[in-house]
Amino acid sequence: DATVGSPTDCQECPCPAAASCAIVPRTKEVVCTNCPTGTTGKRCELCDDGFFGDPLGTTGPARACRACKCSDNIDPNAVGNCDRETGECLKCIYNTDGFFCDRCKEGFYGGALAASPADKCKACSCSPYGTVDRQTTCMQVTGQCQCLPHVIDRDCSACEPGFYNLRSSQGCERCNCNPIGSTN
C-alpha cells in the first residue's frame, strides 16, 4: 500500500522472478498475477491444466511443471488429463488405465504402449459359460481368461477334444463314448 507514506509501504512480490503481484481487496491477501509459463497459484506453486510438477518444492524436491506424461493415451482436446502435482493420469483413452495409462483397463488385454490404437487394448470377451465365476477379466498381456475344467481357448469358449457341454457352466464333461462304436 503506497498511499500510507512509510518506507515499508511497498514490498517485493513473494513471487518467482518476473511475476507481478496484487492484493485481493477483500481479503488483503497477496497473490501473484503473472506466473511463469505452465505455473499458477497464489505463489506460482501449482502447475497449469495439462502440466504436473511441484515448482516450488512444496511437498519435496522442486520439480518444474511438465506436460502430462500418459503414454500417448490421452486426448489433447480433453481437460484435466493428469493430476497437476503427482502427474497421475486421469483421462486415459483406448481402454488403457494406470498411473501413466500404461496398462489395459479391467476387462481388456494387449499392449497399452503399442504404437497404433488398433493394437492397444482389446476386450477380454471371456465366454460366460466357460469362465470361472463368469469373470470378465483376463491376463493383461495374453488375454487368457480363467477357464473351467476341460475348457480351452483364450476366451474359454470351447471344450477339450473328447469333452462336451460347455453350456453347463461347470466345465466340460467327458464324452464317455464307447470306443468300439465311435469313429474317433
Binding site: V24, T33, L46, V79
Partner: peptide, 12 residues
C-alpha cells in the same frame, strides 16, 4: 480486470 481469483482451481 480480474473478477475472481481462484488460484488453486482450474476453471473450465
Amino acid at each position: 480486470k480480474t473478477l475472481l481469483h481462484l488460484p488453486d482451481r482450474v476453471v473450465i
